[in-house]
Design a protein around this nucleic acid. Sequence first.
DNA 1: ACCTGAACACCGTTCAAGT
DNA 2: ACCTGAACACCGTTCAAGT
Lengths: 199, 199
Amino acid sequence: MADGPYHHGNLRAALLERAEVILTTSGAEGLTLRGLARELGVSHAAPARHFRDRQTLLDALAVSGFTTLNARLASAAGGGGGGPVGARLAALGRTYVDFAVEHTALLELMFAVKHADDSSDELRERGHESLLIVARLMEEGQQTGAVRPGEPVQLAQVAFSTVHGLATLAVASLLDDTPLAEATELALEILLAGLRPGA
Amino acid sequence: MADGPYHHGNLRAALLERAEVILTTSGAEGLTLRGLARELGVSHAAPARHFRDRQTLLDALAVSGFTTLNARLASAAGGGGGGPVGARLAALGRTYVDFAVEHTALLELMFAVKHADDSSDELRERGHESLLIVARLMEEGQQTGAVRPGEPVQLAQVAFSTVHGLATLAVASLLDDTPLAEATELALEILLAGLRPGA
DNA sequence: ACCTGAACACCGTTCAAGT
DNA sequence: ACCTGAACACCGTTCAAGT
């Protein structure tokens, strides 16, 4: 790991790694290409070799964020498929809220409106992956009678909205005295009740 | 309205007005103090007289956004208080989603994590106003038997989360083929069903 | 292929000085 | 009281040139 004149080829990875740290500690506004270059001991123009512009770097972070999130969601959904669907949906919701408050700035990036044109497609696709994990559980719930009929993806959109919105309220300090865990349980209970057939 | 050497005293209002236009058309990233000053024909240092820094201006925009939103919500909640509670809750939800997709960048500001220290309190208070409008309707619904028992503010937080999250999904292009109006109706139906007593 | 150094056109913020 | 002009310390992005 001795420093040569160059960053021995892994500058791209080093940039992403350092950027994620800065994003977590200082937010997206504190993330500058020049600052990144400085910390990694390369010239300020070096990052441009690996990321066309700042937005492309931010989008790469967002994509990697979705990758992490989706892995956690898939794991929470219960790979093997045991347990009642309602409980697994609730686990999914708690996992999402945990991730969201733990990676506030990253999540903001993941759902930001502005993206580089070439990252936009991949970002959307990763988001769909998240929704699909939920949708598959909805479909299973429909078979076991825990979930009302309807397009599973649309039901997933509603469930996703609930937990995502809750996380937003939490980081915006709008939950006040309500502990986030309590608010999450109430939201999930209302959501699951509303999803039941005949509700 | 002839131009003197100064901006005849209404520079603050002019800055806010112009800033809101730019926010809507170009997003927060496109909003610079120097650009604003240029468009209004004042020196680049003039805005500092009225807003301590850029963040203070952004927070002022966010506060004004909440004012507009709360007025709309209050109106949709039915000032006089006629009609079934469920229908008025649904109207509230549709109003929120409409506002959210119409003022994407503004809403992002309203729920942003970073704020100037002196605006943070007022911003939170305005957010609480939004929640209170919903909470009052929840309380009314509990009396008419349309809404389950529980802390009205907590129920409001759940309802707010649902519609806010839905708006986020919409602007992130994650609703795909589902028209937003359709997704909104489904979300509101599931929410209201989940809120009913004994659900 | 990968990086450097200089250059260009921007920023936000501050502060003496003007009216 | 309100604004200007200059100054400072940053940015992102580009591009010839180096190895």
